[in-house]
Amino acid sequence: MLANKNTARSPGALAYTLLLGIISSTLYLLLYLYSDIMTNIATMIRQGHKGYVVVPIGIALIFSFVHGAFTGRFWDLLGLKAKK
């Protein structure tokens, strides 16, 4: 009836933070590798290809969620916490 698996908490939290960190770093690496394309996309938008506007907006949303989730846990993991 009731589940019976026992797992420690901290290693899980550490692994999750690391995973977010890796995803976030990968996203930034991709942005660096394709930075010229980003600039070209802005130029193309200016030239009338308005549909490309989804690219910067989508990037802003995705990066913010992933990197936000990572940094939110990062300092906590290092023991930097707010005073009560």
């Binding site: 942005l31 980003m38 802005a42 938008i45 200016r46 506007v53 690219v55 913010s64």
Partner: peptide, 16 residues
């Protein structure tokens, strides 16, 4: 962004 004024590289570095 429709004006092509958003430099997403700047936005994301600042966000980081």
């Amino acid at each position: 962004a429709l004006e092509g004024a958003v430099d997403i590289r700047l936005s994301m570095i600042i966000l980081a």
